[in-house]
């Protein structure tokens, strides 16, 4: 595995022409360093998946350049890209995308064989990785026999089999429960730090921020300069602090997705006041707040 740097410069992706044209990503720049874990967050339709697809050479940008260790991926033809995707990138998707007819061992080994490994060597390597990921007893299982977490670990093994420098993960925890999602994230962090691979994750899942070296906020196809996210203490929804309905109590600000949540919050405070437990409520609410990310125009700001 080589330590490669992915450099995204002024990339734009536009779908369609004329009045019906939709710009999914606008003039985005970003550099990924070896061993770095970058989390790209943003609301639905903000262009996260489109950006990740371009970074993984699945999509050509309309404008701008994407360089992998100096090679301009955006200038290569579709015919030249498969070998790069095969050897330089490891993909992990929300839906796992395992081949239903193959056992998990074959799913992983196949990708190594496509990259030129001999069958025996591919199977041995796949066995080793799957075993390391705790799936050694299930090598001959079909994907349909596995749990969501196990499927995602198979997808991670498949992403690792060709020793890629970059792992690109699109909503890797979306179909997993909280515990398994954390497990998968810790696994990705270990892979990044112990094996020196860069990991780019696109997700709505705020829990992932714990493992990220850098968190970026993409909205309307652009990285926002500064964005602070917080959690509505009533409904738990992630809200943008600058746009949220807020209330201040005892010198601390609380943010809500709607006036309804704010009223409910104030109502609870009043009832707790009568019970003499007001400070306990505020403490509880404060404990779930998450001041998330401050992004920068060039994608270099950190959390």
């Amino acid at each position: 595995m080589n330590a490669l740097t992915l450099d995204v410069r002024n990339v734009t992706k536009r779908y369609g022409d004329g009045e019906t044209a939709v710009t999914a990503v606008r003039d985005v720049s970003l550099a990924i360093q070896p061993s770095e874990i970058v989390l790209i967050m943003g609301p639905s339709g903000s262009g996260k998946t489109t950006l990740l697809s371009m970074m993984g050479a699945l999509l050509h940008p309309t404008a701008g350049t994407i360089r992998l260790d100096g090679t301009a991926l955006s200038d290569l033809s579709e015919r030249q890209l498969p070998p790069i995707r095969l050897r330089q990138f490891g993909f992990i998707f929300q839906d796992f995308n395992l081949l239903s007819a193959l056992s998990i061992l074959e799913n992983v080994a196949l990708v190594a064989e496509l990259a030129g490994s001999k069958r025996k060597a591919a199977r041995e390597k796949a066995t080793a990785i799957l075993t390391e990921l705790g799936l050694g007893a299930r090598l001959d299982f079909l994907p349909e026999k596995l749990s969501g977490g196990e499927k995602q670990r198979v997808a991670i093994a498949r992403a690792l089999i060709n020793d890629p420098a970059l792992i690109l993960a699109d909503e890797p925890t979306a179909n997993l429960d909280s515990k398994i999602g954390h497990e998968i994230m810790r696994l990705l962090r270990r892979i990044a730090k112990e094996q020196g691979r860069s990991v780019v994750i696109v997700s709505h899942d705020q829990r992932i921020r714990d493992i990220a070296d850098r968190v970026l906020w993409l909205e309307d196809g652009r990285f926002k300069d500064v964005i602070t996210m917080t959690t509505d203490p009533v409904c738990g929804m992630t809200v943008e602090r600058d746009r949220a309905v807020s209330v201040e109590r005892d010198g601390e600000a609380f943010y809500f997705c709607s006036k309804g949540c704010r009223e409910e919050f104030l109502g609870r405070l009043r009832s707790e006041d009568m019970g003499g437990c007001r400070s306990a409520v505020l403490q509880r609410a404060g404990s779930v707040f998450a001041h998330l990310a401050s992004g920068a125009r060039d994608g270099h700001a950190s959390d």
Partner: peptide, 18 residues
């Protein structure tokens, strides 16, 4: 029926010829 799986293989870098 396996369109998505073929798409996956393409994404992972399987050449069209394969």
């Amino acid at each position: 029926a396996l369109r998505r799986e073929y798409g996956s293989l393409k994404a992972f870098g399987a050449p069209d010829g394969y």
